[in-house]
């Protein structure tokens, strides 16, 4: 019993990480109508930023978190400006292929600079806490708490602030929003910035679980998080959270069963295909969609 509960908690915290990444996907998809394939690689850049601060300069992990977020935010804006903005209004196939190109570019750049061998990024030394006879890693609780706060904050920003309203307007109708005086380019840039900052956080939380990074660090979590965003209903913020958590819990359960564990990734991706077949718009389908 206690094993099941600890698996669930691990799953929730892993799901929190997926949710953070999925939020970036879902916001960018909702507003720019494009699938940002390079989102996963932003996570990787964040982890290397942390590596430079903690591993090479042996500075404080808190500084590492700050630097990672700043670097990723800047990178997100830069990528949007250089690669995606010229293609605004182009066929979606072209944009998608460009995004794949950017993802590839970041990975190979990281490999040229830091090498293909995984490097250690020692963050905090986490201890276990004992709650009702079940030992839980503190980092699981921190991840979950931060994830919850971020989602509430995002919903607040989108519903109540001027920038958030602009985002909703752009996602509803880009042309009409522009006529109403919304600066579309700036709104999309801000969306990329927020998504990338969340990706940096997700990267840091992944480092809490296993303190190793490599050029392909973000590729698989990135794809899985996209799966989470699709499962939850893309464009919906609560959907991203739900999708992420479902994915995290299922994955942890698959990993904890010996004969299923080699197939954990295959199982996770099968969920996507099943969900898309049954409900192509995801769990939070169109009606309750909270489009950003």
């Amino acid at each position: 019993m206690s094993e099941i509960i600890s698996t669930i908690i691990n799953g929730l915290s892993q799901g929190g990480v997926y949710a953070l990444i999925a939020l970036g996907y879902t916001m960018v998809y909702g507003i720019a109508k494009m699938l940002n394939f390079a989102h996963g690689d932003i996570i990787m850049v964040g982890s290397y930023a942390a590596f430079v601060v903690v591993g090479m300069m042996s500075s404080s992990p808190f500084l590492a978190i700050f630097i990672a977020v700043v670097v990723c935010t800047a990178l997100g804006i830069l990528v949007e400006r250089l690669a995606y903005r010229p293609l605004r209004g182009a066929p979606s196939l072209s944009v998608l292929i460009t995004a794949i190109g950017v993802s590839y570019l970041l990975q190979s750049l990281a490999q040229i600079i830091f090498g293909a061998t995984p490097v250690m990024v020692p963050m905090f030394d986490f201890k276990f806490v004992d709650i009702g006879g079940i030992s839980i890693k503190i980092q699981s609780l921190i991840t979950l708490a931060v994830c919850a706060v971020v989602i509430v904050l995002l919903l607040f920003v989108i519903k109540k602030t001027k920038v958030g309203r602009a985002m909703v307007a752009v996602s509803e109708d880009r042309g009409a929003a522009q006529l109403m005086g919304v600066n579309v380019n700036r709104t999309i840039a801000i969306t990329f910035a927020i998504g990338s900052a969340l990706a940096a956080l997700a990267g840091i939380f992944s480092l809490f679980v296993s303190p190793v990074t490599s050029p392909t660090f973000g590729a698989l979590p990135g794809i899985k998080a996209f799966v989470a965003a699709v499962i939850g209903g893309i464009g919906s913020i609560p959907g991203a959270a739900i999708g992420g958590i479902i994915l995290g819990v299922v994955e942890q359960f698959a990993l904890s069963v010996p004969f299923l564990s080699p197939y954990a990734d295959a199982i996770v991706f099968s969920i996507l295909i099943v969900v898309l077949l049954v409900r192509p718009t995801g769990i939070l389908g169109k009606k309750q969609r909270e489009k950003v």
């Binding site: 690669a83 010229p86 293609l87 209004g89 072209s94 460009t98 190109g101 590839y104 570019l105 990975q107």
Partner: peptide, 21 residues
């Protein structure tokens, strides 16, 4: 991985050249 770097640049530039409005 320089090879992949070149691949990535090919993808990005071909696409921008091919379909940027």
């Amino acid at each position: 991985s320089l090879k992949y770097l070149v691949y990535a640049l090919i993808l990005i530039f071909m696409m921008i050249l091919h379909s940027a409005p």
